[in-house]
Write a protein that binds this DNA or RNA. Sequence first.
DNA 1: GCGCCTCTTGACGGTTTCTTAACGCATGAC
DNA 2: GTCATGCGTTAAGAAACCGTCAAGAGGCGC
Lengths: 225, 225
Amino acid sequence: MTKILVVDDEPALVRTLSINLRARGYEVTHAFDGRTALQCIAEDTPDVVVLDLGLPDLDGVQVIRRVRRTSELPIIVLSARHDSDDKVEALDEGADDYVTKPFGMDELLARVRAAVRRRTPSSAHPEPVRTDHFTLDFAERVATRDGSPVKLTPTEWNLLEALAIRPGHLVPQAELLREVWGPGYEKDTHYLRVYVAGLRRKLEPEPGRPRYLLTDPGQGYRFSC
Amino acid sequence: MTKILVVDDEPALVRTLSINLRARGYEVTHAFDGRTALQCIAEDTPDVVVLDLGLPDLDGVQVIRRVRRTSELPIIVLSARHDSDDKVEALDEGADDYVTKPFGMDELLARVRAAVRRRTPSSAHPEPVRTDHFTLDFAERVATRDGSPVKLTPTEWNLLEALAIRPGHLVPQAELLREVWGPGYEKDTHYLRVYVAGLRRKLEPEPGRPRYLLTDPGQGYRFSC
DNA sequence: GCGCCTCTTGACGGTTTCTTAACGCATGAC
DNA sequence: GTCATGCGTTAAGAAACCGTCAAGAGGCGC
């Protein structure tokens, strides 16, 4: 069953949305502020989030940013503001769609359907990795080495994920750069050098002689478990 | 390079979009009507389509429907109409996103980035080769000989690939040089001598008496498995 | 505002890969 | 036999690439 989290500080709107969504067969949970929303996302693991930008505590964009650190959960943004900058900012932070209040219920439902349809298995995280020297849990973004936790930055996780989604496979430099930094970065290979070095320092037993994060000079990198 | 197809019947808008998208590093093609658009999609295989709903020949929704029969190509819809029904219909037919004219360029660019991010990458390579003495996996760029891995350089892989696309067939020297080193290198046959020698040394059981990488003197080389 | 963390950017040295040249061998023409 | 041409082999210098370090910019939380 598809779960939808509705985040808005107007109880009336939340109620209207809940009724309509439930009538279409969705399971609906709700939150009235940003912190609660983040908690619900972590605990209830909804399939889609409908998020109002104007919340009492956190800015909606911040909520998107936090969520995007760890997941690709589809987010549909609601906003009363007509200003286009908001849309841009929210979309750039990783929102999937944007609806301006007031909106028709049909439109919102269509966008929810589109978001649910998009939620493909390919957006799922790579399998957790367990080697002799470290473990990686991509869903939780937790890494351990010799039993103790290792801190990885968001970019390091993104890069690792791009490599670990196909363990043992060569991933071309341009593809890594596009997936982690975005289109237009395909030639900035120095990013890869810096971040691979960082990952090796944190994960490899001998960073100077890598065993897991391997280089194919002139081609790309591969993650071997 | 990420290819974007812009479909709109207003040349001025197409031009503006093309300039902006190209400035962001995208490759842009365009069509002014629905039939041409479908043709472009089939032939140019763009990565994202930006599609105006109001086209002279076909309805934009019909274009979406046709495309969705065969692919999941991300489609961003443009429309001058403010009517919400259009949005609903387009999204339900499988459009990924919807922008109402007039729109800010920043907003559209953000939506394009979001669509590109969602798209799954893929590419084509010759079939893997398996002989009595070695195996070649072109997608992974992994070669093994007698069970143990063999390291090949990027140029060696490119040359092997040019030969292995048509196993058993003679490939003229000029063609190999053009495909691997680029146009203008058609006469630099010494490259072939050097690199074929390298490949034989790494792959052939008796490099002096080649069995897989064969020479047709004065003409070219062929790869026989 | 302040400190912390992350990302970006530049510089340097070591390594791999590419390019180029030289030489030996075979073949065929004269 | 001698020469010319094309191919195979090797090695050395040039260029490109990679790993590493560190300084500076920017964002975020407090």
